[in-house]
Design a protein around this nucleic acid. Structure first.
Lengths: 119, 119
DNA sequence: TGTCAAGATAGACGCATGTCGATGTCTTGT
DNA sequence: ACAAGACATCGACATGCGTCTATCTTGACA
């Protein structure tokens, strides 16, 4: 309801519709903070464009010049902010984007509303 | 072209279309870092939904329980990341959202592409 | 049961960031 | 010329964050 926590999506009206209140802004900033890192952005894009819409850590590691714990840390941030689902299958852990979270971000930056007001 | 700097918009394909390269991710993260703060999110939403699509600092200050230098700092971050245009008229400084920057963010979180892949 | 590989956690370190009070810079009006 | 108001800049401080190495946990398999 209040959009305060990082767990309630479908959060707010588009940015240009009306001013966000403090709770809405706090909730939205949690998701955006998670996305506002080059490594995590690439992680999201790799997972999203990977076959089946999911990828295990072993698929992700080779794409970066970073240690395994660092990637694990970034995946944890994305998971805890609600952007990625985690699914352990055997020894491997698969990550998949959560559509609700992605939709929440997209709705705030709704193209029509933005261009309408900002032209 | 390369989307590396914070000044080149119309940056990248939607997140779900193909993996971002390092330069694209770096450029996009500059904009997202600027947005990933509750105060700056509210500043953007106030400016965007204000009459005429612009607001002066004097319009913005009363909405926050923060010092004037702090608000000035946040506006500078939004301006330098390309999200806000600054226009000094007399004693007042007016801020206005830059459509190109907003469009760049919106395009990355394109709803159709995201739901299509992430369902 | 012991070993190995996948991934997570813990702790440390340095740099970035949000906030403030004090001060600087313009512009307007007297 | 001076004073006042709007906003920016500066320097300081505490906190947050990205990265690493070392270590732990878990599951597969001989």
């Amino acid at each position: 309801m209040s959009c305060a926590g990082s767990e309630s999506f479908g959060c707010c009206a588009p940015l240009a519709r009306e001013p966000l209140n403090e709770d809405q802004a706090a909730g939205m900033s949690v998701i955006l903070k998670a996305l506002a890192d080059p490594v995590r952005l690439r992680l999201m894009s790799i997972v999203l464009s990977h076959e089946g819409g999911e990828a295990c850590v072993c698929d992700l590691l080779p794409a970066f010049d970073l240690s395994q714990p660092t990637i694990s840390h970034h995946l944890k941030v994305l998971h805890e902010s609600g952007l990625l689902d985690r699914d352990k299958r055997g020894v491997w852990v698969y990550y998949r984007a959560r559509p609700e979270a992605m939709a929440a971000v997209a709705s705030v930056f709704d193209v029509d509303t933005l261009t309408e007001t900002a032209r």
